[in-house]
Write a protein that binds this DNA or RNA. Structure first.
Lengths: 239, 239
DNA sequence: AAGTGGTCTAGACCACTCC
DNA sequence: GAGTGGTCTAGACCACTTG
């Protein structure tokens, strides 16, 4: 930088702060100057500029598209943290929901899966993997596990593009009871990042859910991975 | 790397994968070899090795301590996502809770704060900032905002080291009703990272809470920032 | 072909901890 | 003082998008 070495404060953060001022001037969707020219303007190396841009990308303020440029992003999408249909929740907020089935197969249960589904190890388990879309953009990757023994006809009943939730309740007579969900941050694997059309090493929100029916039996376990730069969740707290 | 260029898969991820195998062999708390020697062993640059280590650090698998080394981390702490006392929740899990008051002052409300607290802009607001500790380690930074007009005696009644929740309910007769909380990922600012004794650019879990009393009036708004590598949250879902 | 973001190298210096 | 992780530079090549 030209002025004020600011001891203790990393250079990339000073850059980030000045970059935010620039962002606020530009409108939503506006294109940022190329990294190389920004680095030159700010008098820092490209690495330092990229570090600042990367943080703003993780924070959801910027979106980088390879071969095109970097753009000011739109605000995050806030979804309800509840046992409701993804489709309905998104539509209620005026967005266009979508799903793409990535895979639907059967695997033997490992120890953890067997314990949470209440079955024996190596028992057959459905694995349904879907990319969740909002307004055509991939925002999440949802992997659902169900015991084959409990839902032997699922393969014939479920239309992959339809709602699993609706299929279970309407066609198979399942009654959802309480569930629990653990939320944490993780870094996407390359495969996950690719499916979500995200750049590598993006912080994600990982939701691990167990759904039980009204008798307390486990219906499904779900591993949902959402782009941390695009999504947040709202929970209602009761005293 | 020595073998298999693996097109499409970034080198730092191949390193990360091999590093995980190494981690599983070492026990919890074990020291990792220094970055420079690891980079040499794996045949990559130090930057690439650091990228792999950084992701494992963000995932909570590793902990780096400057001047000491890098160590295999303990599992994340899972807290309930509910309107309960932080102290009680942590103690219930067999951990030792603690708090450190960073600041307690009054500020004029900006537009956002005024709207959520139901007061006029520039009205006085308490700002109570505390670092949350678990077993002596800082894991979160909690900033609470309350309207001065509503709790004029708070300053005299509250012992900074005590429970704010208990002070409000027992001493000031507040009855907590429903609240809501929005969860998302952000990158820590340098100040926040320093208070949490974390390395820069660490993904964090940001919880923005609004608590209301049984009449629906806003009691407080809370901005809680938790280390994403050390903490997760559990929510109970109702149909 | 040109320009963009994405990855990687080699080397440097700083800040911190321990001896 | 030696060794550790943390930051930064200058330069290179790759992958992708657009003309």
């Amino acid at each position: 930088m030209t002025e004020k070495p600011e001891p203790g404060v990393p250079l990339h953060f000073v850059v980030k702060t000045r970059l935010i001022e620039l962002l606020d001037q530009l409108g939503e969707g506006a294109a940022l100057p190329p990294e190389r020219s920004l680095a030159k303007d700010f008098g820092v190396s490209r690495w330092t500029m990229r570090q600042a841009i990367r943080e703003l990308t993780a924070d959801g303020r910027l979106r980088a598209r390879q071969g095109q440029g970097t753009f000011v992003a739109t605000p995050k999408l806030i979804q309800p943290l509840a046992l409701v249909s993804y489709t309905e929740a998104l539509r209620a907020q005026g967005h266009d929901p979508g799903r793409e089935v990535v895979g639907f197969d059967q695997i033997p249960a490992d120890a953890v899966l067997a314990a949470s589904l209440g079955i024996a190890e190596d028992d057959a388990v459905y694995r349904l993997e879907r990319v969740l879309l909002a307004d055509g953009q991939p925002i999440g990757l949802e992997t659902t596990y169900l015991a084959v023994e409990r839902f032997p006809t699922l393969r014939e009943v479920l239309r992959p593009t339809g709602s699993l939730y609706r299929c279970l309740t309407d066609d198979l007579g399942v009654r959802f009871g309480e569930g629990e969900e653990v939320v944490e941050t993780v870094i996407a694997t390359p495969r996950e990042a690719e499916l979500l059309k995200a750049t590598q090493s993006l912080p994600m929100l990982l939701l691990n859910r167990i759904s039980r029916d009204t008798d307390g039996r486990t219906i499904e376990t779900v591993r949902s991975l959402f782009r941390g730069d695009r999504v947040g969740f709202r929970a209602t707290l009761r005293p």
